[in-house]
């Protein structure tokens, strides 16, 4: 790693690893000690007209965007080239599909965020960590959209697969290319940094609901019976948030 300064090393290598460790350990901790807090914390009871459009739009577009990221940064350019997809075709595809997803995400997030801010009943249920997660997500999303639409679709284009992706994939094999990200355009740097922040906040926010998508409902029997089972009370301090004291905010 020639020419890498200490701050660069910290920012682009150590910080991501801290984020990943927080992500993994945080989830294990949360799953073990806060089953009671593990929920989507739906606000549909309070408001449903805006949610009806915002939530499905946001989620489906987010899934598309996540899929795009997997293709874009986890699959090396040499692989797509090997099956005969040239770089310009790939970039064209990523720009249009990405733009479609981006439009969905941005409209969705605008609806959801304005609902959070302007519908009094919804705002009253929003905890600080909800705000944090939502703001970080919004930063990632907005900058991501500027990249996709502004740079790749309308602008001159930037082959992130030659730079950002190399660094990102390198993180997982223990050989991150710090120079690649450190000299990428500022937008890409902010996008990546905010994304790590989201990863770090994830296990402590409502975002954990994403891991509980109940696919097995499809083949579960309809009725569930259980026998009364003996249970010890939880050890003090390990039982998650439980029911809050009356008058305590969310």
């Amino acid at each position: 790693m020639k020419g890498v300064t200490a701050p660069e090393l910290f920012w682009w290598v150590i910080l991501p690893y801290i984020a990943l460790a927080t992500f993994v350990i945080g989830h294990i901790w949360r799953y073990r000690y806060d089953q009671f807090g593990w929920t989507s914390r739906s606000t549909q009871l309070q408001e449903k007209r805006l949610l009806k459009w915002g939530s499905p739009l946001f989620h489906y577009a987010t899934f598309a965007a996540i899929g795009g990221h997997i293709i874009g940064i986890l699959i090396p350019e040499s692989w797509t080239a090997a099956i005969g997809i040239p770089e310009n075709i790939y970039r064209w595809f990523s720009a249009t599909a990405g733009t479609a997803a981006a439009i969905g995400v941005i409209i969705g997030v605008i609806i959801l965020a304005s609902r959070r801010m302007f519908v009094a009943r919804v705002r009253a249920t929003t905890s600080p960590v909800d705000w944090l997660a939502l703001i970080l997500l919004a930063i990632v999303i907005i900058i991501g959209i500027v990249e996709t639409v502004g740079v790749n679709l309308l602008g001159s284009g930037y082959n992130y697969r030659q730079s950002v992706s190399l660094w990102f994939r390198g993180l997982f094999v223990g050989n991150p290319d710090v120079n690649a990200i450190a000299h990428a355009p500022l937008l890409y740097q902010i996008h990546a940094t905010a994304a790590w922040a989201v990863i770090m906040v994830w296990p402590f926010s409502r975002l954990v609901h994403a891991w509980s998508y109940p696919v097995w409902y499809l083949w579960r029997p309809f009725l569930v019976y259980r026998t009364r089972k003996a249970q010890r009370p939880n050890e003090p301090g390990t039982s998650g948030r439980r029911w809050r004291r009356i008058g305590v905010r969310y």
Binding site: S42, Q44, V224, R226, R228
Partner: peptide, 26 residues
């Protein structure tokens, strides 16, 4: 309930929500 958090007790038929398994899918 998609999460399987709700159940009927075999012994006396009381229907309950397991607060730890409910994920708020409503």
């Amino acid at each position: 309930c998609p999460s399987g958090a709700m159940y009927k007790r075999e012994e006396d038929g009381i229907v309950l929500v397991d607060q730890d398994r409910c994920r708020g899918w409503r």
